[in-house]
Design a binder for these strands. Structure first.
Lengths: 247, 247
DNA sequence: TAGTAAACTCGAACACCGTGCGAGCGCCGA
DNA sequence: TCGGCGCTCGCACGGTGTTCGAGTTTACTA
Protein backbone atom coordinates (compact mmCIF):
# COMPACT_ATOMS: atom_id res chain seq x y z
CA UNK A 1 0.00 0.00 0.00
CA UNK A 2 2.64 2.49 0.98
CA UNK A 3 4.83 3.72 -1.80
CA UNK A 4 7.55 4.70 0.59
CA UNK A 5 10.93 3.06 0.52
CA UNK A 6 11.69 3.79 4.16
CA UNK A 7 8.91 2.69 6.47
CA UNK A 8 10.16 4.95 9.22
CA UNK A 9 9.61 7.99 7.12
CA UNK A 10 5.89 7.27 7.21
CA UNK A 11 5.67 6.67 10.93
CA UNK A 12 3.72 9.10 12.99
CA UNK A 13 6.66 9.46 15.33
CA UNK A 14 9.42 10.13 12.91
CA UNK A 15 7.56 12.05 10.27
CA UNK A 16 9.13 15.47 9.92
CA UNK A 17 6.92 18.45 10.68
CA UNK A 18 5.37 20.21 7.78
CA UNK A 19 7.82 22.50 6.12
CA UNK A 20 5.39 25.36 5.88
CA UNK A 21 1.77 26.21 6.13
CA UNK A 22 -1.17 25.55 8.33
CA UNK A 23 -1.89 22.13 9.80
CA UNK A 24 -4.37 20.36 7.60
CA UNK A 25 -7.68 19.57 9.24
CA UNK A 26 -8.63 17.16 6.49
CA UNK A 27 -6.84 14.26 4.86
CA UNK A 28 -7.31 12.24 1.76
CA UNK A 29 -7.96 9.11 3.78
CA UNK A 30 -10.58 10.77 5.88
CA UNK A 31 -12.30 12.16 2.80
CA UNK A 32 -12.38 8.77 1.11
CA UNK A 33 -13.66 7.09 4.26
CA UNK A 34 -16.42 9.64 4.70
CA UNK A 35 -17.39 9.39 1.04
CA UNK A 36 -17.81 5.64 1.44
CA UNK A 37 -19.96 6.22 4.51
CA UNK A 38 -22.17 8.53 2.54
CA UNK A 39 -22.35 6.15 -0.40
CA UNK A 40 -23.32 3.25 1.82
CA UNK A 41 -26.06 5.31 3.37
CA UNK A 42 -27.54 7.06 0.39
CA UNK A 43 -26.21 5.42 -2.75
CA UNK A 44 -24.39 6.89 -5.72
CA UNK A 45 -26.77 9.83 -6.13
CA UNK A 46 -26.48 10.61 -2.45
CA UNK A 47 -22.86 11.65 -2.72
CA UNK A 48 -22.32 15.26 -3.58
CA UNK A 49 -19.27 17.34 -2.87
CA UNK A 50 -21.34 19.73 -0.81
CA UNK A 51 -22.80 16.99 1.35
CA UNK A 52 -19.39 15.45 1.72
CA UNK A 53 -18.03 18.78 2.87
CA UNK A 54 -20.70 19.31 5.45
CA UNK A 55 -20.37 15.79 6.84
CA UNK A 56 -16.67 16.50 7.22
CA UNK A 57 -17.61 19.65 9.14
CA UNK A 58 -15.75 21.57 6.48
CA UNK A 59 -16.56 24.00 3.75
CA UNK A 60 -18.43 22.90 0.68
CA UNK A 61 -15.37 22.90 -1.53
CA UNK A 62 -12.59 22.11 0.92
CA UNK A 63 -12.15 18.59 -0.33
CA UNK A 64 -10.94 19.96 -3.64
CA UNK A 65 -7.56 20.60 -2.12
CA UNK A 66 -7.03 16.86 -1.71
CA UNK A 67 -8.86 15.61 -4.75
CA UNK A 68 -8.85 17.13 -8.21
CA UNK A 69 -12.32 16.13 -9.22
CA UNK A 70 -15.29 14.09 -8.16
CA UNK A 71 -14.31 11.44 -10.67
CA UNK A 72 -10.93 11.18 -9.06
CA UNK A 73 -12.54 10.81 -5.66
CA UNK A 74 -14.67 7.99 -7.03
CA UNK A 75 -11.56 6.34 -8.37
CA UNK A 76 -9.99 6.48 -4.92
CA UNK A 77 -13.18 5.22 -3.36
CA UNK A 78 -13.34 2.33 -5.82
CA UNK A 79 -9.84 1.27 -5.04
CA UNK A 80 -10.42 1.60 -1.32
CA UNK A 81 -13.27 -0.91 -1.35
CA UNK A 82 -11.26 -3.16 -3.63
CA UNK A 83 -8.90 -3.34 -0.70
CA UNK A 84 -11.59 -4.95 1.43
CA UNK A 85 -11.45 -8.13 -0.59
CA UNK A 86 -9.62 -10.91 1.15
CA UNK A 87 -7.23 -12.58 -1.22
CA UNK A 88 -6.12 -16.17 -0.62
CA UNK A 89 -2.50 -16.92 0.06
CA UNK A 90 -0.70 -18.17 -3.00
CA UNK A 91 -0.48 -21.91 -2.94
CA UNK A 92 -2.81 -22.18 0.03
CA UNK A 93 -5.35 -24.31 -1.80
CA UNK A 94 -6.01 -25.83 -5.20
CA UNK A 95 -6.61 -23.29 -7.90
CA UNK A 96 -10.35 -23.81 -8.22
CA UNK A 97 -10.89 -23.12 -4.55
CA UNK A 98 -8.66 -20.06 -4.70
CA UNK A 99 -10.29 -18.66 -7.83
CA UNK A 100 -13.76 -19.29 -6.43
CA UNK A 101 -12.77 -17.52 -3.22
CA UNK A 102 -11.65 -14.49 -5.18
CA UNK A 103 -14.88 -14.43 -7.15
CA UNK A 104 -17.03 -14.80 -4.06
CA UNK A 105 -14.97 -12.21 -2.21
CA UNK A 106 -15.43 -9.68 -4.97
CA UNK A 107 -19.13 -10.36 -5.09
CA UNK A 108 -19.48 -10.05 -1.32
CA UNK A 109 -17.76 -6.67 -1.47
CA UNK A 110 -20.12 -5.44 -4.17
CA UNK A 111 -23.15 -6.58 -2.22
CA UNK A 112 -21.78 -4.76 0.82
CA UNK A 113 -21.36 -1.60 -1.28
CA UNK A 114 -23.99 -1.88 -4.03
CA UNK A 115 -23.04 1.48 -5.54
CA UNK A 116 -19.68 0.17 -6.77
CA UNK A 117 -21.53 -1.67 -9.51
CA UNK A 118 -22.14 1.70 -11.09
CA UNK A 119 -18.47 2.62 -10.83
CA UNK A 120 -16.87 -0.16 -12.81
CA UNK A 121 -18.24 1.32 -16.00
CA UNK A 122 -16.80 4.77 -15.42
CA UNK A 123 -13.10 4.17 -15.24
CA UNK A 124 -11.09 0.97 -15.21
CA UNK A 125 -10.15 -0.25 -11.75
CA UNK A 126 -6.41 0.21 -11.81
CA UNK A 127 -5.52 1.38 -8.34
CA UNK A 128 -3.08 -0.46 -6.12
CA UNK A 129 -5.72 -2.57 -4.44
CA UNK A 130 -7.30 -3.58 -7.73
CA UNK A 131 -3.82 -4.50 -8.89
CA UNK A 132 -3.25 -6.56 -5.81
CA UNK A 133 -6.37 -8.52 -6.66
CA UNK A 134 -5.35 -8.96 -10.29
CA UNK A 135 -1.94 -10.10 -9.20
CA UNK A 136 -3.38 -12.75 -6.96
CA UNK A 137 -5.74 -13.92 -9.68
CA UNK A 138 -2.91 -14.13 -12.17
CA UNK A 139 -0.85 -16.04 -9.65
CA UNK A 140 -3.63 -18.55 -9.10
CA UNK A 141 -4.13 -19.07 -12.83
CA UNK A 142 -0.45 -19.47 -13.58
CA UNK A 143 -0.18 -22.00 -10.78
CA UNK A 144 -3.11 -23.79 -12.37
CA UNK A 145 -1.19 -24.14 -15.60
CA UNK A 146 -2.28 -21.22 -17.73
CA UNK A 147 0.33 -19.39 -19.75
CA UNK A 148 0.42 -16.45 -22.15
CA UNK A 149 -2.73 -14.65 -23.17
CA UNK A 150 -5.14 -17.21 -21.73
CA UNK A 151 -4.00 -16.00 -18.31
CA UNK A 152 -5.47 -12.62 -19.09
CA UNK A 153 -8.50 -14.13 -20.77
CA UNK A 154 -9.35 -16.37 -17.86
CA UNK A 155 -8.76 -13.62 -15.34
CA UNK A 156 -10.99 -11.27 -17.25
CA UNK A 157 -13.60 -13.99 -17.62
CA UNK A 158 -13.85 -14.40 -13.87
CA UNK A 159 -13.88 -10.71 -13.09
CA UNK A 160 -16.33 -9.94 -15.86
CA UNK A 161 -18.78 -12.47 -14.66
CA UNK A 162 -18.75 -11.18 -11.11
CA UNK A 163 -19.11 -7.59 -12.19
CA UNK A 164 -21.84 -8.36 -14.69
CA UNK A 165 -23.93 -10.41 -12.33
CA UNK A 166 -23.46 -7.91 -9.52
CA UNK A 167 -24.46 -5.11 -11.86
CA UNK A 168 -27.65 -6.88 -12.83
CA UNK A 169 -28.41 -7.89 -9.27
CA UNK A 170 -27.96 -4.40 -7.94
CA UNK A 171 -30.12 -3.00 -10.72
CA UNK A 172 -32.77 -5.46 -9.70
CA UNK A 173 -32.51 -4.53 -6.04
CA UNK A 174 -32.64 -0.84 -6.80
CA UNK A 175 -35.87 -1.32 -8.68
CA UNK A 176 -37.53 -2.73 -5.59
CA UNK A 177 -39.73 -0.52 -3.51
CA UNK A 178 -37.68 0.28 -0.41
CA UNK A 179 -39.83 -1.52 2.13
CA UNK A 180 -40.54 -4.64 0.14
CA UNK A 181 -38.82 -7.99 0.01
CA UNK A 182 -37.72 -9.49 -3.28
CA UNK A 183 -40.54 -12.00 -3.20
CA UNK A 184 -43.17 -9.33 -2.67
CA UNK A 185 -41.73 -7.42 -5.59
CA UNK A 186 -41.99 -10.46 -7.82
CA UNK A 187 -45.57 -10.80 -6.64
CA UNK A 188 -46.28 -7.20 -7.65
CA UNK A 189 -44.86 -7.70 -11.08
CA UNK A 190 -46.60 -10.97 -11.71
CA UNK A 191 -49.33 -9.51 -13.95
CA UNK A 192 -46.72 -7.95 -16.22
CA UNK A 193 -44.58 -11.04 -16.25
CA UNK A 194 -47.59 -13.22 -16.94
CA UNK A 195 -48.41 -10.95 -19.85
CA UNK A 196 -44.92 -11.28 -21.25
CA UNK A 197 -45.01 -15.01 -20.61
CA UNK A 198 -48.15 -15.30 -22.64
CA UNK A 199 -46.48 -13.66 -25.59
CA UNK A 200 -43.23 -15.58 -25.54
CA UNK A 201 -43.63 -19.33 -25.66
CA UNK A 202 -40.28 -20.48 -24.30
CA UNK A 203 -39.95 -18.00 -21.52
CA UNK A 204 -43.63 -18.37 -20.73
CA UNK A 205 -43.52 -22.12 -20.47
CA UNK A 206 -40.53 -22.00 -18.21
CA UNK A 207 -42.09 -19.33 -16.07
CA UNK A 208 -45.31 -21.27 -15.55
CA UNK A 209 -43.32 -24.21 -14.24
CA UNK A 210 -40.97 -22.20 -12.06
CA UNK A 211 -42.93 -19.30 -10.70
CA UNK A 212 -42.68 -20.39 -7.10
CA UNK A 213 -39.16 -19.61 -6.10
CA UNK A 214 -37.28 -17.61 -3.56
CA UNK A 215 -35.89 -14.62 -5.41
CA UNK A 216 -33.06 -14.01 -2.95
CA UNK A 217 -31.84 -17.57 -2.74
CA UNK A 218 -31.97 -17.69 -6.50
CA UNK A 219 -29.31 -15.03 -6.78
CA UNK A 220 -26.89 -16.77 -4.45
CA UNK A 221 -27.42 -20.18 -5.98
CA UNK A 222 -27.21 -18.83 -9.48
CA UNK A 223 -23.93 -17.17 -8.74
CA UNK A 224 -22.44 -20.28 -7.18
CA UNK A 225 -23.69 -22.35 -10.11
CA UNK A 226 -22.15 -19.94 -12.59
CA UNK A 227 -18.77 -19.92 -10.89
CA UNK A 228 -18.64 -23.70 -10.93
CA UNK A 229 -19.61 -23.95 -14.61
CA UNK A 230 -17.07 -21.34 -15.44
CA UNK A 231 -14.29 -23.10 -13.58
CA UNK A 232 -15.36 -26.37 -15.23
CA UNK A 233 -14.92 -24.72 -18.58
CA UNK A 234 -11.47 -23.44 -17.75
CA UNK A 235 -10.44 -26.75 -16.20
CA UNK A 236 -11.49 -28.78 -19.20
CA UNK A 237 -9.60 -26.44 -21.48
CA UNK A 238 -6.49 -27.05 -19.38
CA UNK A 239 -7.09 -30.80 -19.41
CA UNK A 240 -7.34 -30.76 -23.20
CA UNK A 241 -3.98 -29.06 -23.28
CA UNK A 242 -5.21 -25.67 -24.32
CA UNK A 243 -6.75 -26.53 -27.65
CA UNK A 244 -9.98 -25.29 -29.06
CA UNK A 245 -11.98 -28.38 -28.32
CA UNK A 246 -14.86 -29.83 -30.29
CA UNK A 247 -16.99 -27.38 -32.20
CA UNK B 1 -33.90 8.86 -9.57
CA UNK B 2 -37.64 8.42 -9.49
CA UNK B 3 -39.45 6.97 -6.54
CA UNK B 4 -40.71 3.51 -7.11
CA UNK B 5 -43.64 2.98 -4.79
CA UNK B 6 -45.40 0.71 -7.24
CA UNK B 7 -43.09 -0.66 -9.88
CA UNK B 8 -45.86 -2.13 -11.95
CA UNK B 9 -48.22 0.80 -12.17
CA UNK B 10 -45.31 3.12 -12.77
CA UNK B 11 -43.74 0.97 -15.41
CA UNK B 12 -43.42 2.46 -18.84
CA UNK B 13 -44.51 -0.75 -20.44
CA UNK B 14 -47.86 -1.14 -18.81
CA UNK B 15 -49.15 2.37 -19.24
CA UNK B 16 -51.92 2.54 -21.85
CA UNK B 17 -51.27 4.77 -24.86
CA UNK B 18 -52.83 8.19 -25.00
CA UNK B 19 -56.30 7.96 -26.50
CA UNK B 20 -56.92 10.74 -29.01
CA UNK B 21 -56.67 14.41 -29.68
CA UNK B 22 -54.81 16.97 -31.74
CA UNK B 23 -51.79 16.00 -33.84
CA UNK B 24 -48.62 16.09 -31.86
CA UNK B 25 -45.41 17.48 -33.29
CA UNK B 26 -43.31 15.11 -31.23
CA UNK B 27 -43.61 11.42 -30.64
CA UNK B 28 -42.18 8.97 -28.19
CA UNK B 29 -40.36 7.15 -30.94
CA UNK B 30 -38.78 10.30 -32.27
CA UNK B 31 -37.69 11.31 -28.80
CA UNK B 32 -36.13 7.94 -28.13
CA UNK B 33 -34.39 7.94 -31.50
CA UNK B 34 -33.00 11.43 -30.97
CA UNK B 35 -31.86 10.55 -27.48
CA UNK B 36 -29.91 7.60 -28.90
CA UNK B 37 -28.34 9.89 -31.48
CA UNK B 38 -27.23 12.24 -28.74
CA UNK B 39 -25.94 9.39 -26.61
CA UNK B 40 -23.95 7.95 -29.49
CA UNK B 41 -22.40 11.32 -30.14
CA UNK B 42 -21.67 12.57 -26.65
CA UNK B 43 -22.03 9.67 -24.26
CA UNK B 44 -24.15 9.30 -21.16
CA UNK B 45 -23.22 12.67 -19.72
CA UNK B 46 -23.98 14.34 -23.02
CA UNK B 47 -27.68 13.65 -22.77
CA UNK B 48 -29.67 16.29 -20.95
CA UNK B 49 -33.35 17.02 -21.29
CA UNK B 50 -32.55 20.54 -22.40
CA UNK B 51 -30.18 19.42 -25.12
CA UNK B 52 -32.62 16.78 -26.21
CA UNK B 53 -35.31 19.41 -26.47
CA UNK B 54 -33.22 21.73 -28.56
CA UNK B 55 -32.09 18.98 -30.91
CA UNK B 56 -35.76 18.16 -31.40
CA UNK B 57 -36.31 21.82 -32.26
CA UNK B 58 -38.69 21.92 -29.33
CA UNK B 59 -38.86 23.54 -25.95
CA UNK B 60 -36.57 22.48 -23.18
CA UNK B 61 -39.25 20.55 -21.34
CA UNK B 62 -41.52 19.43 -24.15
CA UNK B 63 -40.37 15.85 -23.99
CA UNK B 64 -41.90 15.57 -20.55
CA UNK B 65 -45.31 15.14 -22.11
CA UNK B 66 -44.21 11.81 -23.58
CA UNK B 67 -41.91 10.64 -20.85
CA UNK B 68 -42.43 10.96 -17.13
CA UNK B 69 -38.84 11.27 -16.18
CA UNK B 70 -35.32 11.06 -17.53
CA UNK B 71 -34.96 7.65 -15.94
CA UNK B 72 -37.99 6.47 -17.83
CA UNK B 73 -36.54 7.79 -21.07
CA UNK B 74 -33.37 5.85 -20.39
CA UNK B 75 -35.44 2.76 -19.83
CA UNK B 76 -37.06 3.24 -23.23
CA UNK B 77 -33.70 3.92 -24.82
CA UNK B 78 -32.23 0.79 -23.27
CA UNK B 79 -34.99 -1.35 -24.61
CA UNK B 80 -34.78 0.25 -28.03
CA UNK B 81 -31.15 -0.73 -28.48
CA UNK B 82 -31.91 -4.17 -27.09
CA UNK B 83 -34.13 -4.46 -30.14
CA UNK B 84 -31.12 -4.11 -32.43
CA UNK B 85 -29.81 -7.51 -31.41
CA UNK B 86 -30.41 -10.17 -33.99
CA UNK B 87 -31.75 -13.30 -32.36
CA UNK B 88 -31.30 -16.67 -34.01
CA UNK B 89 -34.30 -18.64 -35.16
CA UNK B 90 -35.27 -21.35 -32.72
CA UNK B 91 -33.88 -24.68 -33.86
CA UNK B 92 -31.82 -23.10 -36.60
CA UNK B 93 -28.53 -24.37 -35.26
CA UNK B 94 -27.12 -26.37 -32.40
CA UNK B 95 -27.49 -24.74 -29.05
CA UNK B 96 -23.86 -23.70 -28.65
CA UNK B 97 -23.87 -21.83 -31.92
CA UNK B 98 -27.14 -20.16 -31.08
CA UNK B 99 -26.08 -19.17 -27.56
CA UNK B 100 -22.75 -17.87 -28.85
CA UNK B 101 -24.59 -15.83 -31.48
CA UNK B 102 -26.76 -14.25 -28.81
CA UNK B 103 -23.74 -13.41 -26.70
CA UNK B 104 -21.81 -11.93 -29.59
CA UNK B 105 -24.87 -10.02 -30.77
CA UNK B 106 -25.35 -8.46 -27.37
CA UNK B 107 -21.71 -7.54 -27.19
CA UNK B 108 -21.73 -6.02 -30.65
CA UNK B 109 -24.68 -3.87 -29.70
CA UNK B 110 -22.94 -2.62 -26.57
CA UNK B 111 -19.80 -1.77 -28.52
CA UNK B 112 -21.96 0.12 -31.00
CA UNK B 113 -23.55 2.05 -28.12
CA UNK B 114 -20.93 2.11 -25.36
CA UNK B 115 -23.13 4.16 -23.03
CA UNK B 116 -25.55 1.26 -22.50
CA UNK B 117 -22.96 -0.35 -20.27
CA UNK B 118 -23.75 2.36 -17.74
CA UNK B 119 -27.47 1.71 -18.03
CA UNK B 120 -27.65 -1.93 -17.05
CA UNK B 121 -26.84 -0.98 -13.49
CA UNK B 122 -29.67 1.51 -13.15
CA UNK B 123 -32.75 -0.53 -13.77
CA UNK B 124 -33.20 -4.11 -14.87
CA UNK B 125 -33.74 -4.51 -18.59
CA UNK B 126 -37.34 -5.66 -18.68
CA UNK B 127 -38.80 -4.03 -21.77
CA UNK B 128 -40.33 -6.02 -24.60
CA UNK B 129 -37.13 -6.24 -26.59
CA UNK B 130 -35.12 -7.39 -23.59
CA UNK B 131 -37.83 -9.95 -23.00
CA UNK B 132 -37.62 -11.11 -26.58
CA UNK B 133 -33.94 -11.72 -26.08
CA UNK B 134 -34.48 -13.56 -22.79
CA UNK B 135 -37.14 -15.66 -24.41
CA UNK B 136 -34.84 -16.71 -27.19
CA UNK B 137 -32.07 -17.50 -24.76
CA UNK B 138 -34.39 -19.57 -22.62
CA UNK B 139 -35.61 -21.36 -25.73
CA UNK B 140 -32.07 -22.23 -26.76
CA UNK B 141 -31.19 -23.50 -23.31
CA UNK B 142 -34.31 -25.61 -22.96
CA UNK B 143 -33.65 -27.12 -26.37
CA UNK B 144 -30.15 -27.90 -25.16
CA UNK B 145 -31.55 -29.94 -22.30
CA UNK B 146 -31.67 -27.56 -19.36
CA UNK B 147 -34.69 -27.64 -17.06
CA UNK B 148 -35.82 -25.84 -13.94
CA UNK B 149 -33.67 -23.27 -12.24
CA UNK B 150 -30.52 -24.04 -14.19
CA UNK B 151 -32.26 -22.51 -17.19
CA UNK B 152 -32.30 -19.20 -15.38
CA UNK B 153 -28.81 -19.73 -14.00
CA UNK B 154 -27.29 -20.46 -17.37
CA UNK B 155 -29.12 -17.62 -19.04
CA UNK B 156 -27.98 -15.20 -16.38
CA UNK B 157 -24.46 -16.58 -16.63
CA UNK B 158 -24.28 -15.75 -20.33
CA UNK B 159 -25.86 -12.33 -20.00
CA UNK B 160 -23.79 -11.44 -16.95
CA UNK B 161 -20.59 -12.26 -18.67
CA UNK B 162 -21.37 -10.15 -21.70
CA UNK B 163 -22.49 -7.21 -19.61
CA UNK B 164 -19.54 -7.46 -17.27
CA UNK B 165 -16.93 -7.67 -19.98
CA UNK B 166 -18.58 -4.92 -22.00
CA UNK B 167 -18.72 -2.75 -18.89
CA UNK B 168 -15.04 -3.20 -18.26
CA UNK B 169 -14.13 -2.74 -21.89
CA UNK B 170 -16.11 0.44 -22.23
CA UNK B 171 -14.58 1.79 -19.03
CA UNK B 172 -11.21 1.08 -20.54
CA UNK B 173 -12.08 2.81 -23.78
CA UNK B 174 -13.49 5.82 -22.00
CA UNK B 175 -10.26 6.25 -20.12
CA UNK B 176 -8.33 6.63 -23.37
CA UNK B 177 -7.43 10.08 -24.56
CA UNK B 178 -9.85 10.78 -27.41
CA UNK B 179 -7.33 10.88 -30.24
CA UNK B 180 -5.25 7.89 -29.22
CA UNK B 181 -5.37 4.27 -30.19
CA UNK B 182 -5.49 1.56 -27.57
CA UNK B 183 -1.89 0.63 -28.20
CA UNK B 184 -0.70 4.18 -27.75
CA UNK B 185 -2.60 4.35 -24.49
CA UNK B 186 -0.91 1.21 -23.25
CA UNK B 187 2.38 2.79 -24.23
CA UNK B 188 1.55 5.87 -22.17
CA UNK B 189 0.72 3.84 -19.13
CA UNK B 190 3.76 1.61 -19.37
CA UNK B 191 5.72 3.40 -16.62
CA UNK B 192 2.85 2.94 -14.17
CA UNK B 193 2.27 -0.65 -15.20
CA UNK B 194 5.96 -1.40 -14.96
CA UNK B 195 5.94 0.03 -11.48
CA UNK B 196 3.04 -2.15 -10.48
CA UNK B 197 4.65 -5.13 -12.15
CA UNK B 198 7.78 -4.59 -10.11
CA UNK B 199 5.77 -4.75 -6.91
CA UNK B 200 3.64 -7.77 -7.73
CA UNK B 201 5.59 -10.87 -8.67
CA UNK B 202 2.92 -12.88 -10.47
CA UNK B 203 1.41 -10.11 -12.45
CA UNK B 204 4.83 -8.65 -13.11
CA UNK B 205 6.28 -11.84 -14.45
CA UNK B 206 3.38 -12.35 -16.74
CA UNK B 207 3.52 -8.79 -17.93
CA UNK B 208 7.20 -8.98 -18.81
CA UNK B 209 6.53 -11.96 -21.01
CA UNK B 210 3.42 -10.61 -22.65
CA UNK B 211 3.88 -6.91 -23.00
CA UNK B 212 3.88 -6.91 -26.78
CA UNK B 213 0.30 -7.42 -27.72
CA UNK B 214 -2.42 -5.74 -29.66
CA UNK B 215 -4.79 -4.26 -27.12
CA UNK B 216 -7.78 -4.26 -29.44
CA UNK B 217 -7.40 -7.78 -30.74
CA UNK B 218 -6.93 -8.89 -27.15
CA UNK B 219 -10.44 -7.79 -26.30
CA UNK B 220 -12.08 -9.65 -29.15
CA UNK B 221 -10.07 -12.80 -28.65
CA UNK B 222 -10.60 -12.72 -24.92
CA UNK B 223 -14.33 -12.46 -25.37
CA UNK B 224 -14.46 -15.33 -27.84
CA UNK B 225 -12.29 -17.42 -25.55
CA UNK B 226 -14.52 -16.68 -22.60
CA UNK B 227 -17.70 -17.59 -24.44
CA UNK B 228 -16.24 -20.94 -25.49
CA UNK B 229 -15.03 -21.78 -21.98
CA UNK B 230 -18.37 -20.82 -20.59
CA UNK B 231 -20.26 -22.98 -23.06
CA UNK B 232 -17.83 -25.82 -22.35
CA UNK B 233 -18.69 -25.53 -18.70
CA UNK B 234 -22.41 -25.64 -19.36
CA UNK B 235 -22.04 -28.48 -21.85
CA UNK B 236 -20.07 -30.66 -19.50
CA UNK B 237 -22.63 -30.06 -16.78
CA UNK B 238 -25.31 -31.30 -19.16
CA UNK B 239 -23.20 -34.29 -20.14
CA UNK B 240 -22.77 -35.23 -16.50
CA UNK B 241 -26.52 -35.20 -16.16
CA UNK B 242 -26.74 -32.05 -14.13
CA UNK B 243 -24.82 -33.14 -11.09
CA UNK B 244 -22.30 -31.13 -9.16
CA UNK B 245 -19.24 -32.76 -10.65
CA UNK B 246 -15.91 -33.46 -8.98
CA UNK B 247 -14.90 -31.10 -6.26
C1' DT C 1 12.02 39.93 15.11
C1' DA C 2 9.93 41.06 10.77
C1' DG C 3 8.85 39.42 6.48
C1' DT C 4 7.86 36.08 3.07
C1' DA C 5 5.89 32.31 1.08
C1' DA C 6 3.84 27.98 1.30
C1' DA C 7 -0.10 25.05 2.81
C1' DC C 8 -4.59 25.07 3.47
C1' DT C 9 -9.82 26.66 4.14
C1' DC C 10 -13.85 28.24 2.19
C1' DG C 11 -17.62 31.51 0.50
C1' DA C 12 -19.24 33.47 -3.72
C1' DA C 13 -20.21 32.78 -8.32
C1' DC C 14 -20.87 30.33 -12.90
C1' DA C 15 -22.98 27.35 -15.87
C1' DC C 16 -25.51 23.64 -15.90
C1' DC C 17 -28.91 20.06 -14.42
C1' DG C 18 -33.95 17.57 -13.74
C1' DT C 19 -38.36 18.81 -13.07
C1' DG C 20 -43.23 21.17 -11.43
C1' DC C 21 -46.28 24.52 -12.79
C1' DG C 22 -49.41 26.87 -15.39
C1' DA C 23 -50.41 30.02 -19.18
C1' DG C 24 -51.32 29.64 -23.88
C1' DC C 25 -52.09 27.44 -28.38
C1' DG C 26 -54.75 24.91 -31.98
C1' DC C 27 -57.77 21.30 -33.01
C1' DC C 28 -62.03 18.44 -32.31
C1' DG C 29 -66.73 17.14 -31.22
C1' DA C 30 -70.96 19.14 -30.03
C1' DT D 1 -69.50 28.95 -32.09
C1' DC D 2 -67.75 27.22 -28.07
C1' DG D 3 -65.77 24.27 -24.48
C1' DG D 4 -62.43 21.25 -23.51
C1' DC D 5 -58.60 18.54 -24.41
C1' DG D 6 -53.93 17.41 -26.31
C1' DC D 7 -49.94 19.51 -26.46
C1' DT D 8 -46.05 23.11 -26.18
C1' DC D 9 -42.96 25.58 -23.52
C1' DG D 10 -41.10 29.66 -20.55
C1' DC D 11 -40.20 30.35 -15.94
C1' DA D 12 -38.59 29.20 -11.60
C1' DC D 13 -36.79 26.16 -7.83
C1' DG D 14 -33.38 23.80 -5.67
C1' DG D 15 -29.94 21.27 -6.58
C1' DT D 16 -25.07 19.93 -9.05
C1' DG D 17 -19.54 20.12 -10.09
C1' DT D 18 -16.04 23.23 -10.27
C1' DT D 19 -13.17 27.82 -10.44
C1' DC D 20 -11.36 31.60 -8.23
C1' DG D 21 -9.32 34.36 -5.12
C1' DA D 22 -9.22 36.34 -0.64
C1' DG D 23 -8.12 34.93 3.98
C1' DT D 24 -5.67 32.28 7.73
C1' DT D 25 -2.09 29.80 9.82
C1' DT D 26 2.34 28.27 10.00
C1' DA D 27 7.66 27.70 9.40
C1' DC D 28 11.55 29.22 7.33
C1' DT D 29 14.81 33.06 6.16
C1' DA D 30 17.06 37.56 6.52
Amino acid sequence: MSSNADPLANSVWTRPPRSRGAQPTLSREQIVRTAIELLDEKGLDGLSMRRLGSRLAAGATSAYWYVATKDELLELVLDEVMGEIEVPEVGAADWRTAAAALAHGLRAMILRHPWVAGLFGVRPAMGPNAMRMSDRMVGVLIAAGFTGMPVAYASSLLMSHVIGSATMESAWRRSLAPGKTANEAVEDMRPYIDDVAARYPDYGGWWRENRDLDADRLQDEGFAFAVERLLDGLQSWLDRGGEAGPA
